[in-house]
Amino acid sequence: MTSGISSLVNSTTTSTSSSSTSTSDATGIANNFTQFLTLLTTQLKNQNPLDPMDTNQFTQQLVQFAGVEQQLKTNDRLDSILTASKTASTATATSYIGKTVTTDGTSAQLQDSTATWTLDPARAAPKAAITISDAKGNVVATQTTALTAGSQAFTWNGKTSAGLTAPDGTYSIKIAAQDTTGANVAVDTSVTGTVTEVDLSGTTPMLLVGSQKVPLSSVQLIGLSTSGS
């Protein structure tokens, strides 16, 4: 019977080796714990007085099952925390619908021949080569300009290098900037748009700005809703 208890303990411990335990696993472990107590009680009642159960083994089995019980409680608490966190994130994300947000990123929507990015160079860059590409990565326009230190808007009029008008859609920007000494200057980019939807299909809510999905962590600034509320 001692071997049966040991096998039961080992089986239970193995089933909780992963970081999370499913409901069916938890139910199985609870049933195993009940069986363990039954077997243990029976063994204590019927043990040979001249050859009693090894107290070290008995203590070890109790410690193992206590650890299993503690892990089950920890997993339950973690599940509750994750659920609460996701609920809070969802509520926060949905509150952004209709509001104007500024987010990290290089992609902006060209609409009515206008696409705008916010550029923030680390320092003044008298020479900055700007490259604009379409959603497929094809370069459609290039431009050389000077950037002052600090945040500033850059607006593209939708004209390609060939002088044609680019169709509405998503375009990305890339900047290669240099200061007066010829050293490279890092330029942060961000875009501003209105949140129209929230995608809750993934593990974290994503804001839909134009056709771009933006995580909450990328939001830099939140403006008023488009209705003015």
Rank of each mutant, 00 (worst) to 15 (best):
T2V: 08
T2E: 10
S3T: 13
I5H: 03
S7R: 13
V9T: 07
N10L: 14
N10P: 02
S17P: 04
S17K: 10
S17L: 11
S18G: 14
T23K: 07
T23V: 04
N31Y: 06
N31Q: 09
N31R: 08
F33W: 06
T34V: 07
T34P: 01
Q35R: 13
L40Y: 14
T41Q: 13
T42L: 12
Q43R: 13
Q43P: 05
L44C: 04
N46Y: 09
N46S: 15
L50G: 11
D51W: 03
P52M: 08
M53G: 04
M53F: 07
M53C: 00
D54Q: 10
T55Y: 13
Q60I: 10
A66P: 03
Q71A: 07
Q71K: 13
L72M: 11
T74E: 10
L78R: 11
S85C: 00
K86M: 00
T92H: 10
T94S: 12
S95C: 06
K99Y: 03
K99W: 02
V101Q: 05
T102I: 02
D104P: 00
T106C: 02
T106N: 13
L110N: 01
D112R: 07
D112T: 09
S113M: 07
T118K: 06
L119F: 07
A122M: 03
R123S: 08
P126L: 09
A129P: 04
I132E: 10
D134R: 04
D134E: 04
D134S: 09
A135Q: 13
K136S: 15
V140T: 11
A146C: 07
A146S: 15
T148Y: 10
T148K: 14
S151A: 15
S151V: 04
S151Y: 00
F154R: 07
F154D: 09
T160N: 13
T160Q: 11
T160D: 14
S161M: 13
L164F: 10
L164R: 14
G169P: 02
Y171T: 03
S172C: 03
K174H: 13
I175W: 10
A176K: 15
A177E: 06
A177I: 02
T181Q: 15
A183W: 01
A186D: 10
E197L: 08
V198N: 07
L200C: 05
T203V: 06
T203L: 10
L208Q: 11
L208E: 02
Q212G: 03
Q212M: 08
V214F: 02
V214I: 15
P215R: 05
L216K: 04
S217W: 09
S218G: 01
S225R: 12
S227F: 06
S229R: 03
S229E: 06
S229N: 08
